[in-house]
């Protein structure tokens, strides 16, 4: 028991590592804010394109979505961070992460928005157009609000996935939460900082995960 506490829950080491980890958590928080906003905007645009009636618009959107859902975000990130310098473009880690996440998250969000738009009854479009709303107004005031409400649990669970995904930024030496924790582990030869990072993720994500479970149950009962 003592060995376990010593190896994973060592209070002294956690106290030492705390300032570093808090700094890392702050970077993670900023990163989350940026990539979630980017992902939702990109995903919304892409989702609308993928819902288009015009195949010349729709198909490229589908290809984009499927390509970037097929490639793991980690390899995308490494390709951008380590590959671009070969053609003379050097990007700081934070920017590399943002680009990789934009490509990956847009694809995932687009898929969610698309299924949300598909879930809205056809008659809604017709009713809105019949009352003289333009196609853009129809989307903005009638279709999208319903679509978003229908896929709210999926949007929320994708946000959770993105927050967890930001931990891969540690691979390109961005000093976010996991990178800081792993550095503290290497210095102290003790895993307690990693456990501490896990606890910090839990504080934010556990309540969200609970809410998602609640949502899922409510949804499947009503359907």
């Amino acid at each position: 028991m003592d060995t376990i506490i010593n190896a994973f829950f060592n209070i002294d080491i956690m106290r030492q590592a705390a300032p570093l980890l808090l700094k890392g958590a702050w970077v993670t928080l900023q990163l989350c804010a940026v990539v979630i906003i980017l992902g939702i905007s990109g995903g919304l645009a892409l989702g609308l394109l993928a819902s288009s009636k015009n195949a010349a618009v729709r198909l490229p959107a589908f290809v984009f979505i499927d390509v970037f859902r097929a490639i793991p975000p980690l390899i995308l990130l490494i390709l951008i961070y380590a590959g671009l310098p070969f053609i003379g473009i050097r990007v700081p880690p934070f920017v590399a992460v943002c680009i990789a996440f934009l490509l990956n998250n847009s694809a995932y969000f687009a898929e969610i928005f698309r299924s949300g738009i598909k879930s809205v009854a056809r008659g809604q479009t017709e009713a809105a157009r019949a009352t003289g709303l333009s196609p853009a107004q129809t989307q903005a005031y009638v279709i999208l609000p319903q679509a978003v409400r229908n896929v709210l649990p999926d949007l929320l669970s994708n946000v959770v996935e993105i927050v967890k995904l930001t931990s891969i930024a540690s691979v390109v030496s961005l000093t976010e939460l996991l990178y800081s924790a792993n550095m503290a582990r290497a210095v102290t030869y003790n895993s307690s900082p990693l456990v501490m990072a896990a606890l910090m993720y839990l504080v934010v994500l556990w309540p969200l995960v609970r809410v998602i479970s609640r949502f899922q149950r409510g949804l499947s009962i009503s359907s």
């Binding site: 967890k164 996991l178 895993s191 993720y201 839990l202 994500l205 995960v209």
Partner: peptide
């Protein structure tokens, strides 16, 4: 398992378990 980043779990197991 749903709230923790898998990467964090992997590092804890990979680097932490040997000390046990």
């Amino acid at each position: 398992m749903r709230a923790l980043p898998p990467l964090v779990l992997m590092l804890i197991l990979f680097f932490g378990l040997p000390s046990l």
